Amino acid sequence: MNQPLNVDWAADWLRRSAAVIAEQRVALSELDRAIGDGDHGENMDRGFNAILGKLDAAPPDSPGGAFKLAAMTLMSKVGGAAGPLYGTAFLRAATAVGDAAELNAELLVAALAAARDGVVARGKAEPGDKTMIDAWTPAVDAARAAAESGAEPAAVLAAAATAAEAGAAATDPLVARKGRASYLGERAVGHRDPGAASSALMLRAAAQAALA
Rank of each mutant, 00 (worst) to 15 (best):
L103N: 13
V26Q: 15
F48K: 02
D12H: 15
M75N: 14
R180G: 11
L103I: 04
G87V: 00
D45E: 10
D129F: 00
A96T: 05
D39R: 09
R144P: 06
G167T: 04
L31W: 14
A101Y: 03
A81W: 10
P84I: 02
A163L: 06
R15V: 10
V26H: 15
V109E: 13
A176I: 00
R192K: 14
D39G: 08
A125Y: 06
V109Q: 12
M75V: 06
L203G: 10
A19Y: 14
S149W: 11
G190T: 05
T131H: 00
A110H: 06
N43M: 03
A121P: 05
G179P: 01
G87S: 09
A110V: 00
A111W: 14
A11M: 14
V20M: 04
D12I: 01
G65N: 07
A22D: 15
W9S: 09
R192T: 05
A205H: 11
G36T: 10
L85M: 11
G195A: 03
R204Q: 13
P138R: 08
P127F: 02
V78E: 15
S149P: 08
A22Y: 01
M75L: 15
T131F: 00
G53A: 11
A166C: 10
A170C: 03
A113Q: 15
D99Y: 03
L28A: 07
R116P: 05
G53S: 08
G53V: 11
V97A: 09
A19G: 04
A50Y: 07
R122P: 07
L55P: 11
V120I: 12
L112Y: 12
A66I: 02
A121L: 08
G47H: 08
A22W: 03
G150I: 04
M132N: 07
G118E: 06
A197K: 09
L184R: 02
A146T: 05
F48N: 07
S182A: 15
G64T: 01
E30Q: 15
L31E: 14
A81I: 10
L184F: 06
D193L: 02
A121Y: 07
Q3H: 14
D193H: 03
A160L: 02
A101T: 06
D12E: 14
H40K: 12
G167I: 02
P4N: 11
D12Y: 01
A71P: 09
E152T: 03
S62Y: 03
L201Q: 10
L28D: 06
I21V: 15
S76P: 06
P59C: 08
D117F: 01
A176E: 01
A154N: 10
G79F: 09
L103Y: 07
R187C: 04
A160Y: 00
T171L: 03
V189N: 01
P194K: 05
A50M: 05
A111C: 08
D172S: 10
S182E: 06
G128V: 08
D8K: 13
D37H: 14
D117V: 03
G185W: 05
N104T: 03
Y183L: 07
E186S: 09
A50T: 12
D129L: 01
A142E: 07
K178V: 05
A210W: 04
V109K: 06
A155I: 03
E148A: 12
L103V: 03
